[in-house]
Design a protein around this nucleic acid. Structure first.
Length: 263
DNA sequence: ATCGGTACCTGCACGC
DNA sequence: TGCGTGCAGGTACCGA
């Protein structure tokens, strides 16, 4: 499910837990935990939630006493307010008012409790909606990988994923196999602009609901109707009518228009 | 440091 | 109907 716009939407949709206290925490699946379940439960019980924010694709819940509960949704993770636990409910936070559940069909997500931010979350690249063109260009100069793979690297910018990498490259008119460091200045600017534009619009639409993505209230996003290349293989390009192609970059399905996106 | 490939899971769509 | 294959928003880890 979750790239920056989806994680931002989920983060906003759980904002109302701020100020509530965690009464108890139950874990039903150990695979999604970074750390010992009993120690995590003990560390969470009784803590008040002081803030909820997003960092890249991570959701960080700041607790009393400087502890953080950090959640990554993986591919199919969901944070849900209230409702009933189901087959894929792996964690339940009982709050003094309401319940926050973590569900994850594929179990690629992770929950972690730490003092302050986890180090690997601290070390990510800049936020794509905050990075300046200058810094974006300087970082890109050091990258010899294909631009699609660079955009997916969370140490380059934090929060881009497979959908928005493809959509940003299409809007910038750049071929996904182009080498990052070799992009000319004006194409770098187009990419930076396209990245900001596509992420901003996607957040406004509540993200993309590809199969079952929903926010904490169960609401779907609408940006999937704005996709121009992602999962449109064989269908006509909205700009030129050529058939959209699919290839593999960094083992990820990569969609592009062979006429509009040139190396 | 960076790069590309693999592993980790479940469920669905597809062809035979 | 059942079975095999490929595919799906993710990151971590490996050797080169």
């Amino acid at each position: 499910m979750p790239e920056l716009p989806e994680v931002e939407t989920v983060t906003r949709s759980i904002a109302r837990v701020v100020g509530r206290r965690i009464v108890s925490a139950e874990f039903r699946c150990l695979r999604i935990l970074r750390g010992d379940p009993d120690r995590m439960s003990a560390a969470l019980a009784g803590r008040r939630i002081r803030g909820v924010r997003r960092r890249g694709k991570f959701i960080v819940m700041e607790l009393d006493g400087g502890e953080c509960l950090t959640v990554h949704l993986g591919m199919t993770g969901k944070l849900l307010l209230n409702g009933t636990p189901g087959r894929h409910t792996h964690a339940v936070l009982n709050l003094d008012r309401g319940v926050l559940r973590y569900e994850d069909q594929r179990q690629f997500g992770k929950l972690e409790v730490s003092r302050g931010l986890p180090e690997r979350v601290e070390k990510l690249g800049p936020e794509p909606l905050e990075v300046t063109l200058e810094e974006f260009a300087a970082r890109l100069k050091r990258r010899k990988a294909r631009i699609k793979a660079v955009l997916l690297d969370q140490h380059f910018v934090r929060g881009m994923g497979n959908i928005y990498a493809d959509e940003a490259l299409f809007r910038a008119g750049i071929h996904p196999l182009a080498i990052g460091a070799r992009l000319r200045r004006e194409r770098v600017k187009r990419l930076h602009d396209a990245m900001v534009e596509v992420l901003t619009q996607a957040i406004e639409k509540g993200g993309s609901s590809i199969s079952d993505y929903v926010d904490a209230e169960g609401r779907k996003g609408f940006f999937q109707f704005e996709h121009r290349v992602y999962q449109r293989t064989g269908r006509p390009c909205v700009t030129c009518g050529a058939a959209i192609r699919r290839t593999l970059v960094a083992q990820r399905g990569t969609h592009y228009c062979p006429k509009c996106q040139r190396r």
